[in-house]
Design a protein around this nucleic acid. Structure first.
Lengths: 221, 221
DNA sequence: ACCTGAACACCGTTCAAGT
DNA sequence: ACCTGAACACCGTTCAAGT
């Protein structure tokens, strides 16, 4: 039994619990809320206990970004590469939007984790299996990855609530008068703020555009 | 003359000096190095003096991200939209790679600054001038912006030195054996680490792909 | 082995004071 | 008006100690 006044129902600390709690904290309150001290609080432990399972905060950030990558569906190496790459891209966007803090975090990690490596290997494998020569794999990978990450990055900072959209036309125009930004005002009022507009739907447009062009460039097609 | 022991050659503090020093600091040592206290040190001033020119740290971050956007070339509304959009995209990539910390910062700012608005207005204006209907403007803007930001994000975390490339093949293979990640290993050793490979050059591939597809979709073409 | 208290060098920021 | 000192509530982390 615990020697101090700690909750006796408290499960034993572990690296896994530290890392998963960090993900929860980031999802709920953003990556800035992930502090050793807040983590300790939630785990019903003192800050210093965490250092028994993790080298330092950097290691926690490495771990949680790799944990997010693990959730992304990996493409299978079939002859019909396009649906597989599409499934991967869509899953990547969904995962990154669910954990917006991960986008920047992944990029700032200097040493990729095992999930990231496995992930890269699968995408390259699928393209190679479909007959893409190495230079085209490079082109395709850079283009797709840039697009997916860039889109998720934008999407993660958009206003969510449908309710607020109605107010936005007014607040938008009061802050940014149509005289100063005529095209932006026109575009916002007559397109973005119209019912039925959904930024998330734009993802498929760009993805289709890229996949279609790539399929034309695949020599074995 | 200054009343205390401060350097008499020290120019008077101003919002402009605060903001520009913040950019220098971020360029030299990353965005995490931009602290009120470090800023004060470099400006030969005490931390609290800064608050006379700026509401808080958030305001500084807002200001420096808008300052970076200001450096991006804006497209002109000519009939021949493609070279203008290309010039804009290229300039955006260059600017963002020069100030890598700005990519994430721009996205995390909730209230866009005047430079950002003027910038968006110009891009939309160019596309409209070329005859793009509003929905296609939305598609084009989302796709291009995602691609540009995503590419710059990836590029900003790449190893720079040409010298280190030679060592990378060894360190890569020792950390990520070819048995575990066969396609990644093949791609890296036989393509990425070959002389002549330049990740920055990949930018033009994706940009051409997107611009070509868009020009086919422009009804007035 | 697992967990902790005290301490250190950092943060942003408030408030009351100096010139 | 412009600048500052002292103080507060936060950080990550080291080191020496507890059970």
């Amino acid at each position: 039994m615990p020697s101090r006044g700690a909750d006796p129902t408290r499960p034993q600390l572990s690296r896994d619990r530290v890392v998963h709690t960090a993900v929860d904290l980031a999802d709920e309150a953003g990556i800035t809320a992930v502090t050793i001290r807040a983590l300790a609080d939630r785990l019903q432990v003192k800050p210093m206990s965490i250092y028994h399972y993790v080298a330092n905060k950097e290691a926690i950030l490495d771990a949680i970004s790799d944990l997010v990558v693990e959730q992304i569906d990996v493409p299978a190496p079939t002859a019909d590469w396009e649906p597989e790459i599409r499934r991967w891209a869509t899953s990547a966007r969904h995962t990154l939007v669910k954990h917006p803090w991960a986008i920047t975090l992944m990029q700032s990690r200097l040493t990729p984790g095992p999930a990231t490596l496995r992930h890269h290997d699968a995408v390259i494998g699928t393209l190679r299996h479909a007959g893409f020569p190495l230079p085209l794999v490079g082109h395709a990978f850079a283009t797709l990855d840039s697009y997916i990450h860039g889109f998720a990055l934008q999407e993660s900072t958009l206003p969510f609530d449908r309710d607020t959209v109605a107010d936005q036309a007014d607040t938008f125009l009061s802050h940014f008068p149509a005289e100063t930004y005529p095209h932006l005002a026109d575009f916002t009022v007559n397109h973005v703020l119209r019912p039925g507009y959904d930024f998330a739907a734009e993802f498929d447009f760009g993805l289709n555009l890229i996949l279609t062009s790539l399929s034309h460039l695949n020599p074995t097609r």
